[in-house]
């Protein structure tokens, strides 16, 4: 069915995520299908409770769908074990959070090294790769500072460096500018655009329409369903259910 020359990086096929609270079942995602191709910059929007967080968690391998298939690089992760999910999060996913989520007692360099540590790199490799990332996000002179000694924008840069350090297939950013002032937020957005320009695949979850307007593709969610997918030539092939 997929007639594209390249396989999609991510494919959601009728994905449902149902949470059970006592007797009540809540469908956070109620049959979502779309694909993401390498190199896309996508904004995922929607009001709170629309299912965008759940989508993010599934895509980030933090959780598994209740039904449906979730393909990451051609592999169905809905049946993957906890250890495999951990490995995928480590190797293929880069998380960027609204509240940065740096470890407070670790300096910038140590924070960036952490995914490399879990990947089993030795000390020298970690240092070398982490320093390269620090340079990429322009924090070289802050490498040995603790997060609390940095400004919000610098913290988010450190977090982005940490997300990039294992060369992931996809970067998931959850409201990355939510805790930043407009000017700093703009700088972070430019960094994302720059990374996109280098061929990175980036998904930004946001309710900021200005941000959404700048991405090449926008997926809007409501009540666990995709209500809008501005699509690209490629994403036109994804199936909509509405």
């Amino acid at each position: 069915m997929d007639t594209l020359p390249t396989d999609p990086l991510v494919a959601f096929r009728d994905v449902r995520k149902i949470y059970r609270m006592d007797a009540v079942q809540v469908a956070a995602l109620d049959g979502v299908s779309f694909t993401v191709h390498a190199g896309e910059l996508i904004a995922i929007t929607g009001p709170s409770g629309s299912g965008k967080s759940t989508l993010m968690h599934l895509l980030g391998c933090l959780d598994r769908p209740t039904t449906g298939a979730l393909m990451l690089e051609g592999r169905d992760i809905s049946r993957a074990s906890q250890n495999e999910l951990a490995r995928l999060r480590n190797q293929r996913i880069g998380f960027v959070f609204q509240s940065f989520n740096l470890l407070p007692r670790f300096n910038v360099l140590q924070n960036i090294e952490l995914p490399l540590t879990y990947a089993g790199n030795d000390h020298h490799t970690r240092r070398r790769k982490a320093m390269a990332m620090v340079a990429l996000v322009g924090l070289t002179d802050r490498a040995h500072h603790l997060p609390q000694q940095l400004s919000g924008g610098q913290r988010q840069r450190a977090a982005i460096a940490r997300a990039l350090v294992n060369d992931p297939a996809i970067i998931l950013a959850d409201e990355p500018t939510g805790n930043l002032d407009t000017k700093t937020g703009e700088q972070i957005l430019r960094l994302f655009e720059e990374l996109h320009g280098q061929g990175r695949t980036i998904l930004i979850v946001t309710h900021d329409h200005d941000i959404a307007a700048r991405t090449q593709r926008r997926i809007a969610l409501r009540d666990g369903l995709i209500v809008e997918d501005t699509g690209t030539a490629r994403s036109a092939f994804s199936v909509h259910r509405s």
Partner: peptide
């Protein structure tokens, strides 16, 4: 708890 969550998100296994 949050730190553990962060560690897990960036690839720590249960064993780690």
């Amino acid at each position: 708890i949050r730190e553990i969550g962060i560690r897990k998100a960036i690839g720590a296994r249960e064993r780690d």
